[in-house]
């Protein structure tokens, strides 16, 4: 595992809707090392997908990045994009044209629903070739053989037949494999997988997860796994960021997080899932209430209305991430 590849600093994103300003991200910060799998976990609406869309410069209208930096550490990138200076590149400062050359090439995305991320009127082969010709300047003949090679690497065989099929002719698992091969086509440094298996059955999910990890090793990329499923986090990731209502509340090595969760929210989540291994059938620990409305989020720590430890300071002051032990950060006044 190498040094830093991506670093997000104090990212604030708001959505200006008719009902009011949705404060979706409230100072998100973490980094991802090269060749590691980083999991971003949290419940619906916590901002995990918005965080990744900001990295890709794909925040939809009426969303806006208000503050923050997304630093990409790659020595060649400045040269490749023809921008001067030195040090990491702040992706948020790149023009749309330059960002087009980063997206798909350096960072690629695997979305939750392959049916909507694939174009229904092009064959799967066509869609892979498009990436090759756009980002790698390969000619058509070369692109075709490379497409077959990519399809083989995601275990879609025979590749020639699969390449001729349209998305609707493929099963859910096969579609997600095609998306995976597209994401690999330009040999990116980072793949972001946003709930890549949420629509799939567990037996198919197992195969896709296995495949993603294998590809990550083989192609030496980093992988950001966005998920709500702590089981997937436990089985795939090296490091984890836990998000709640627009902030990262805990950041840690995966083993430390499951062994010694520090934030009350993380603890609550871990105890809320039925775990057949533990043979415990008594009441599950549940977190009272539900996720707050981000138009009018709670003052101070956004978790305080649902937290049993909440005190005066939690209602007034937003806790910052602090390092408790090496590499294990938590944002809580009571740790």
């Amino acid at each position: 595992m190498g040094g830093k590849l991506l670093e997000i600093k104090d990212l604030v994103v708001h959505f200006f809707t008719e009902d009011g300003v949705v404060k979706a991200l409230d100072g998100v910060g973490f980094h991802v090392n090269s060749e590691e799998t980083f999991a971003l976990v949290g419940e619906t609406g916590c901002g995990k997908s918005v965080t990744m869309l900001s990295v890709l410069g794909l925040i939809p209208i009426p969303g806006k990045v208000i503050n923050g930096e997304v630093l990409f550490y790659d020595e060649d990138l400045r040269h490749e994009l023809g921008i001067g200076g030195s040090g990491p590149v702040d992706l948020l400062k790149l023009s749309p044209e330059l960002m087009n050359r980063v997206r798909g090439k350096r960072i690629s995305l695997i979305t939750q629903d392959p049916m909507t991320s694939l174009n229904p009127v092009y064959t799967s082969g066509n869609q892979i070739m498009e990436v090759l010709t756009t980002h790698r300047g390969v000619d058509r003949r070369g692109a075709e053989s490379e497409t077959f090679r990519l399809l083989e690497s995601v275990a879609l065989v025979p590749p020639k037949q699969i390449a001729e099929k349209y998305p609707h002719q493929l099963s859910g698992g096969e579609r997600q494999r095609v998306v995976a091969s597209i994401s690999l086509a330009a040999s990116p440094n980072l793949i972001i997988a946003d709930e890549p298996t949420t629509n799939l059955d567990v037996t198919v999910q197992a195969r896709i997860l296995e495949l993603l990890l294998e590809l990550k090793e083989r192609f030496r990329t980093s992988l950001i796994m966005i998920t709500h499923d702590l089981g997937i986090v436990a089985e795939t990731s090296d490091r984890v960021g836990v998000m709640y209502a627009g902030s990262v509340v805990e950041l840690s090595d995966v083993f430390a997080l499951f062994k010694e969760p520090l934030h009350p929210y993380t603890k609550g989540l871990l105890e809320a899932i039925p775990n057949p291994r533990k043979r415990r059938k008594g009441p599950l620990k549940s977190i009272p209430g539900s996720v707050p409305d981000l138009i009018d989020p709670p003052e101070g720590c956004r978790f305080h209305p649902r937290c049993e430890l909440a005190s005066e300071i939690c209602r007034e002051d937003k806790p910052e991430l602090r390092e408790i032990s090496t590499g294990h950060y938590v944002a809580c006044h009571h740790v």
């Binding site: 567990v202 037996t203 999910q205 197992a206 195969r207 997860l209 296995e210 499923d229 702590l230 089981g231 997937i232 986090v233 436990a234 089985e235 995966v254 083993f255 499951f258 062994k259 871990l270 899932i273 775990n275 057949p276 291994r277």
Partner: peptide, 21 residues
């Protein structure tokens, strides 16, 4: 089906044999 179920404990990672259908 059971072997495909992700377990929320990283200590089990790699310790069970996964049956891939």
């Amino acid at each position: 089906l059971l072997s495909a179920l992700p377990f929320p404990d990283p200590e089990f990672r790699g310790k069970k044999k996964r049956i891939l259908l």
